[in-house]
Design a protein around this nucleic acid. Structure first.
Lengths: 140, 140
DNA sequence: TCTATTGTTACAGTAAGTGTAACAATTAAA
DNA sequence: TTTAATTGTTACACTTACTGTAACAATAGA
């Protein structure tokens, strides 16, 4: 799954959980969202580790939100499911030659990409699940 | 090449061209920057099509800047070499079910990612090759 | 005409992503 | 305590994308 597909799949699942209120297992969420149940469990287990979602094994178990929808923001969802950065500079293999400002330019871009990453996350930090739910309901 | 590696390789080549002043062929740039000559020609041909670089075939040909370094900004380099977006929502395969706000959530993210893309490009539009050269020389 | 160079295509090799299945671990209910 | 349901994780085959390089046609100046 690409980083953005993971994010939108996670939000789909979270929106469903926010709407139903009650705990739902991966099969139920799979049917309602169209996302493969195994994929869902992978994503939701990451969200569990980050205290966004609560899971219960065993009979009548399932997933539910661990916080209110207005306390969950996009940035923490993104961080929970994504380890990689948006921009990813492969400065390993080709950078053994220290010719012509090589490392200076790499550093320049590492710095630039880091700044961009911070801005994106700032933007996402301002968006809560509640707002997303509101937006999509208005557009329906 | 990942999108960011392409960008930094392009900037490396452009910095070299800005520094030497005179036309240089792909082999010379390859030696000085450590980037494969064939790769360089691919990148530089894209930059040619976008009027950033000038190329001359035949004996004593090569590449040179088509504009002054302070007229070349990062955003146009990025656009010249990159067709893909930073975030890329694969909304094709899985989205045939129109279940549970599926298309609404996809639209929400398409819109969000588009806004982020615009902000990144705005940021890049403010950075010229001259500034990059200045920064890397200061950090040397 | 000849030589140097770009621009483009092709290709083999590698790496990464995908979707699914399987199953161990766990938990709650009976 | 047993049973059934469910998560969490691993494995795997499949596909797709990326990579680096080579090759060579097209081109243009000497």
């Amino acid at each position: 799954m690409s980083s953005s597909t993971k994010l939108s799949n996670s939000v789909k699942a979270l929106c469903y959980l926010a709407n139903t209120g009650k705990p739902s297992n991966s099969f139920e969420i799979s049917i309602k969202t169209g996302i493969n149940a195994s994929k869902l469990r992978k994503l939701l287990s990451l969200l569990c580790k980050n205290k966004i979602v609560k899971s219960n094994k065993g009979a009548f178990g399932g997933f539910s939100l661990k916080k209110n929808a207005d306390e969950i923001h996009l940035q923490e969802i993104y961080c929970a499911i994504e380890d990689r950065k948006v921009f990813d500079l492969h400065s390993s293999a080709e950078t053994k030659n220290n010719s012509f400002y090589d490392s200076e330019i790499n550093n320049y871009f590492l710095n630039l990409f880091e700044n961009i990453q911070i801005e994106i996350e700032d933007k996402m930090r301002k968006i809560t699940l509640t707002e997303i739910l509101k937006t999509i309901k208005n557009n329906k």
